[in-house]
Nucleic acid binder design. Structure first.
Lengths: 141, 141
DNA sequence: TGCGATTAAATCGTGTGCGATTTATATTTC
DNA sequence: GAAATATAAATCGCACACGATTTAATCGCA
């Protein structure tokens, strides 16, 4: 191990950038009553309502052991409903409540605030996003 | 929210890449008996032994509420010792045990395995590391 | 010198992540 | 069509993260 190994490690950069993002999101999402993973679920549902737990998991790279408790908290918060699929009762369909739909308007300003905090231009951001998503896909392969 | 908002979001890319890294590290670190955050602490200590909890936290971007329990687990595992600083008893100095020092040899192959999993060249990796570390530093500013 | 302010860890409660297992439903296969 | 298999969620236990508070030691300054 040479000097400053951590400082030069890609995985640590990703890890610590994740922590930093979380800390930036926290005060922004707090007025909405959401944690960052909960916000991700809401974003996924604003895009496509009625997804099953597995489908949500495919989009978020999470499984039911993480999603089920999180979804229950969103349900308690009155933002979503969870109901067994009539055609296949193994699946649970997740839908938005009216309150959950209304939250979209309040959340509209979030991406802009985050963009500002990154200190990047839109073009830099797009490029970095692609590189990191590619890295993630490599890691998952 | 347009289509595939998540897929185009930088923060989600960082978040999901972090998850993916964690999953790659898990089976590699399991034989060493370490989690990824524990591995980071060990790397920091292999670089500089005798750091206080705060100093470790500055390197890892963590605080005592996270580090204290983690360090206690490393202590129980026999890899480190924790002792109050004689000159300033508020601080706790973290040192390696002989077992902790020996683990460095076993961990030597880890970075190579990770590099392989990223599917990147060393030069691509270095560039991406710099970009993400820069992003993190912007977010922390 | 003494006492209020500061600093360093630790503690506590909540919310993720995830491996392993369990439960319930659907599908396959004989 | 019944038993074996497969699939979807849920459950459980453990280890982070982190805001908020507490405890203990040191510092600062009148």
């Amino acid at each position: 191990m040479g000097p400053a190994v951590l400082d030069q490690s890609l995985c640590f950069a990703v890890y610590s950038a994740g922590l930093a993002f979380n800390r930036v999101y926290k005060p922004i999402l707090e007025p909405l009553g959401l944690t960052y993973p909960q916000y991700l679920v809401m974003v996924a549902l604003w895009e496509a309502e009625g997804q099953s737990v597995s489908e949500l998991g495919e989009h978020l790279f999470l499984e039911s052991n993480t999603l089920t408790p999180l979804l229950k908290r969103l349900e308690v918060a009155g933002l979503i409903t969870r109901a067994r699929d009539k055609a296949d009762e193994r699946q649970v369909r997740v839908s938005l409540t009216e309150k959950g739909r209304r939250l979209l308007a309040e959340a509209a300003c979030v991406p802009g605030q985050i963009l500002q905090a990154t200190g990047l231009t839109v073009e830099q951001l797009r490029q970095l996003q692609r590189a990191i998503a590619g890295l993630r896909d490599n890691l998952r392969a």
